[in-house]
Structure formats: C-alpha cells, structure tokens
Amino acid sequence: MPILVIAEHDNAVLKPATRNAISAATQIGGDIDVLVAGSACAAVAEAAARIAGVTRVRLVDAAHYADHGAENLAALVVANAPGYSHVLAPATAAGKNFLPRVAALLDVAQISDIVAVVSTDTFVRPIYAGNALATVQSVDPVKVISVRGTAFEAAGEASPVSVEALAAGPDLGLSRLVGRELTQSARPELTAARVIVSGGRALGSSDNFHSVLEPLADALGAAVGASRAAVDAGYAPNDYQVGQTGKIVAPDLYVAVGISGAIQHLAGMKDSKVIVAINKDPEAPIFQVADYGLVGDLFDVAPALAAALR
C-alpha cells in the first residue's frame, strides 16, 4: 500500500523538513503520495511534485487550512487515510501538533521522532532525550510516524509528477489564529542553527551572559543557548535553554562556555557534530563529551576566541 506524507509549508514555500520525511518514506518503500493542504498553495504543490521519490501530489486548497490548525488538518488527513499503510509528517512543532490527533482518530499508536527505518513496521526512536534508542514494532494496521529531520537526508529533485486536487473537508471552527510573531533576529534559530554558543552559570550575571557570549556568537554567526542553571539563575530567558527540558539541538559546532555539563544539558546537545568546551575546572563533565576542551577563565578565553575569529 502507498505511503502518505503530509507536507509542511507556509502556503508559499515548502518547508525543507518535508524532504527528510519523504526520504524516510522512501526507505520504508512503496508509492509515496504527498498531501499539500493550505490556502492558495499551488506553488507548494508544484515544489512537492518535483521531489525525488514522490509518486503523486494531492492538493487541498481551502481558506480553513491556511493556518494549519491541528483540528481541521487532522480531520482532513483522517478522511483521506484509507488505502495508505503509513502516514508520515516531519517531527517539527507543526507536525507534533497535528499528527497525534490523526493517530487517535484512526485508533492507532503514533511512532514519534523516528531516527531509523528497520522494516515496514519497525523503527528506531530516541527516548530519555536521546540517552537511549528504542527499536519499536507497530502492530497497528496503519503506521502514523513523525520523522526527525536530522536523521534522514533531504530528498533531492526529480522530474515533476502529477498534482491532483482533492475536496476539502468541513471547517470545524474549533480554533482561530489570532496572530503570529516570528522572531526577527539577525541570529539563527536555536534548533536550526549550524553553530551554537551556549553559556552556563559561570557567566555570573545576565550582563556578563550577553556581553561575553554575544560577540563570540556574532563572530561565528551562531545562535545563543544556555544551560538550565543559567536560565534558573535568571541570566538568560527560558527559550534559550538547551537540554532535556529545553531544546534538543544537533549543530555542526557547539561551543559550551562555562557549562559544567549536567546530565540534563548533555542530553540536549550531545549529538552535535563538534563540541568545544571552555571551563576553568579541568574535571568538569563537559570535557568528557567535548572534542576540543580548553581549560581556562572564560572571561579571558571567550573574548580572545571572538577576536581570533573576527
């Protein structure tokens, strides 16, 4: 039976995470249909039709899908689910929002955040913030799966396949978008950043946190993160938090400044490609996961590093 992949987009542009989900679907094997639901989103459907591995694109265009509210989107997916063996979506904030609704309405389990495909019914997913990997087998007739983007290559381009229009479902009217405030920062977003500079409690104050880390982040074009200890101490806002109870990140380069390396912090960043640790305590646990450790006073080292990189 074919696989249905739900595209993520903003009605104008297809989000790259969709390509990683299609890549996971290709590994499962079989025909792949992509559902594009939105409003005035024909350009997205055309982009989806050019992704390698896709058999067919199904487009639903109606005003009540414009904001991708979970209630309407999940109902639409469920109405179109018969005939599919698997329903996949990216494990992004949007995918995590609507996909469990789909699974519940189909009365099946969801397999969250898969990082590997073992067979058509067996998948690997991280548990305990990535401190363990569980191999799970679904006994349900339909497998509803969210895909961790960083674990699958983005599917490439191919010659376009057909786009077929589907009828819209009803507007359930359960929720209404009031507004969006997208961060207009010159810095990249934490979970999408290629480089992250993170600070810990050793920074000592909110002023130091900004005055020491920001020049270094600017020099690297990096996002700024923080340990839970730094957040709890009030040096950085909560949305900076990297760790088991904050954001899980996997950048190419993670620079930990004055972070001792509590377990819950390591859980959030240990999949980074290269880890640099700057800490004055040579016994700090962060050095056990760091590729490059520099023992020294962060108030000397961080500015010197920023200067050397500029």
Binding site: A109, L133, V136, Q137, S138, V139, G293
Partner: peptide, 21 residues
C-alpha cells in the same frame, strides 16, 4: 500497540583532546 523489541545505548562520543590556548 507498540512492542519494544530492543533498547540500546546510543553511540558514545569518544573523548576529545584538550587544547593549550
């Protein structure tokens, strides 16, 4: 509805090096 077949440790990071400056 899901059977856990196996739970494994993720690949461990090999300890890195200390740099002087």
């Amino acid at each position: 509805r899901l059977k856990t077949l196996k739970v494994a440790e993720p690949a461990r990071r090999s300890g890195g090096v200390k740099v002087a400056d």
